[in-house]
Amino acid sequence: MNPFSSAPALMILDMQKGFDDPYWGKRNNAHAENNTFRLLTEWRKRNWPIFFSKHLSLDPQSPLYHKNDQGIQIKDLLAPKAGEKVFTKNVNSAFIDTELEIHLRQRGIKSVVITGLSTQHCVSTTTRMSGNLGFVTYLVSDAIAAFEITDHQGTVHPPETVQELELAALHKEFAVMMTADQVINRLT
């Protein structure tokens, strides 16, 4: 019996090949894609709603995410199957200038389970908007990953710290934090 209020949508954000490029620097959570795949497998078995997003830069000089670049392709392990909706976006949030919210509302979906890349960009922004739009939002902490960042003073912050602080900021205010195991255990 599913303890979620109804079949939640699985959202797989920007799990694109471009994030494998050294351009991004150090990354945490090397298992994010595998944990996402475990969830994707469970959702497919149950025939529950699955939504993907992918980032497409409007800038033809973008080194990784322009329409003619391999970087925009979703990673092979997580490639969408026929009938699984992919929303192409040009900003961090999967809700802005896409029909994601419309699809969720039309299907009566009240809760979402979020996975993807990167924690400090699309994952954080989409999670915040999901919570603000009134969806019960679950963020899968081991099915997302952060990259190191350099702040305005030139200090480099390791990806583990970025992840920890992003999750702390999102916790309770915008989403319920869960691991992939916790999500799967709630499904059985």
Results as ranks from 00 to 15, higher is better:
residue 77 L to F: 05
residue 175 A to E: 06
residue 182 Q to F: 02
residue 44 R to Y: 03
residue 188 T to C: 04
residue 167 L to N: 00
residue 53 S to Q: 04
residue 149 I to H: 01
residue 43 W to C: 03
residue 110 K to F: 06
residue 88 T to G: 02
residue 185 N to I: 07
residue 46 R to I: 05
residue 157 H to F: 05
residue 44 R to M: 06
residue 143 A to W: 00
residue 178 M to A: 11
residue 7 A to K: 13
residue 185 N to L: 11
residue 173 E to C: 09
residue 131 G to T: 04
residue 179 T to K: 02
residue 61 Q to K: 15
residue 98 T to K: 04
residue 187 L to A: 05
residue 126 T to Q: 03
residue 112 V to H: 07
residue 44 R to F: 05
residue 65 Y to Q: 09
residue 45 K to W: 02
residue 150 T to R: 01
residue 30 A to S: 14
residue 9 A to C: 02
residue 173 E to S: 12
residue 167 L to S: 00
residue 17 K to D: 15
residue 182 Q to D: 11
residue 154 G to Y: 10
residue 90 N to F: 12
residue 140 V to L: 01
residue 31 H to C: 12
residue 116 G to I: 14
residue 181 D to P: 01
residue 58 L to V: 08
residue 172 K to L: 12
residue 124 S to T: 14
residue 156 V to S: 04
residue 79 A to G: 10
residue 1 M to K: 13
residue 39 L to I: 06
residue 53 S to Y: 10
residue 94 A to S: 15
residue 184 I to Q: 05
residue 34 N to K: 15
residue 55 H to M: 06
residue 59 D to W: 04
residue 125 T to E: 03
residue 71 G to W: 01
residue 91 V to N: 10
residue 83 G to M: 07
residue 162 V to G: 00
residue 102 I to V: 14
residue 130 S to H: 00
residue 22 P to W: 02
residue 112 V to N: 05
residue 135 F to A: 03
residue 163 Q to R: 13
residue 185 N to Y: 12
residue 105 R to N: 12
residue 52 F to R: 01
residue 31 H to N: 14
residue 43 W to E: 04
residue 145 A to M: 09
residue 168 A to R: 09
residue 73 Q to I: 09
residue 62 S to F: 01
residue 146 A to C: 05
residue 73 Q to Y: 03
residue 11 M to K: 02
residue 33 E to R: 14
residue 108 G to H: 07
residue 13 L to T: 09
residue 134 G to R: 05
residue 71 G to A: 08
residue 166 E to N: 12
residue 3 P to G: 10
residue 129 M to P: 00
residue 134 G to L: 03
residue 161 T to A: 08
residue 25 G to L: 04
residue 93 S to E: 11
residue 30 A to G: 09
residue 76 D to K: 14
residue 8 P to F: 08
residue 103 H to A: 14
residue 54 K to P: 05
residue 137 T to V: 04
residue 33 E to W: 11
residue 145 A to P: 00
residue 159 P to H: 02
residue 84 E to L: 09
residue 34 N to S: 14
residue 77 L to D: 08
residue 62 S to Q: 03
residue 61 Q to E: 13
residue 169 A to I: 10
residue 24 W to D: 01
residue 97 D to N: 15
residue 124 S to G: 04
residue 32 A to T: 10
residue 155 T to R: 12
residue 99 E to K: 15
residue 3 P to D: 15
residue 160 E to T: 01
residue 125 T to W: 00
residue 90 N to I: 11
residue 154 G to F: 12
residue 175 A to P: 01
residue 81 K to M: 13
residue 11 M to Q: 05
residue 112 V to S: 07
residue 3 P to H: 14
residue 25 G to T: 06
residue 82 A to R: 13
residue 155 T to I: 13
residue 55 H to G: 05
residue 48 W to I: 10
residue 95 F to Q: 07
residue 119 T to H: 03
residue 127 T to H: 04
residue 21 D to K: 00
